[in-house]
Design a protein around this nucleic acid. Structure first.
Lengths: 112, 112
DNA sequence: GTAGCCGGTATCCGAACGGATACCACCTGC
DNA sequence: GCAGGTGGTATCCGTTCGGATACCGGCTAC
């Protein structure tokens, strides 16, 4: 999923920790439950997702709401405001995709 | 210096490693020597700066040129192109400075 | 009662990050 | 000959990051 949304592995631009950017993308469409977030974030362990979400909560990017025997996470206005710089970053990465790739492959050619 | 240029400590947006964004800002005005970079980057050790610069070189953001018994680092076009998303990120951070600060202080109030 | 989902926590681990310190070769100026 | 600057490298160190694994209480379905 995220291979298509955002070419984030190669880009040097990061939003928060490894997963924060992807979590924000997952919450872009509305509130999501803990286990709903784990699906698109293939392979993330509960511990790591919990830690990311707690940090994001601390930083005012998401809210955690435990209601009616389920937990939902939702973007705050601040969290939602990060979508703009994220779009800029993704546009930059897409625009310079080839150059980024060339730089890494050049290294691979020389040393790998 | 960098406290004024970019409120980067509080912002969750990062470009490369800890120093990459600041190095790019330092090189914005033209080529700089190794020791010239160390001045504004107060406290950076030679090892860490070397590592940052080598990574940036590998990623095609800077060039290293050893000429006439001195070494100069210069932004590539790719490196220079990062100034645009960096400006966006800085603008975002400035715009949401108070919210970012509140989130952290709220934590400090509760737990610190 | 027991199997399963939900939303985690606890513990351990290896790798990477960032820094401190010491050291180095090379050249310049005195 | 010796101090000082330049552009590093080598070694060690504590912290953080991200992940693997095991386990947990609460609830539901059968």
């Amino acid at each position: 999923m995220f291979d298509e949304i955002c070419p984030s592995d190669l880009s040097p631009i990061r939003f928060g920790d490894k997963w924060t950017g992807m979590v924000i993308r997952c919450l872009e469409g509305g509130p999501r439950r803990f286990s709903e977030l784990r699906v698109p974030l293939r392979g993330i362990t509960a511990k790591v997702l919990t830690k990311s979400l707690r940090t994001m909560e601390r930083d005012g990017l998401v809210t955690r709401r435990a209601a009616d025997r389920q937990v939902v996470y939702e973007l705050t206005l601040l969290g939602r405001s990060m979508l703009a710089p994220m779009d800029t970053a993704c546009a930059w990465a897409r625009e310079h995709w080839d150059e980024l790739l060339d730089a890494r492959e050049g290294v691979a050619d020389h040393r790998g």
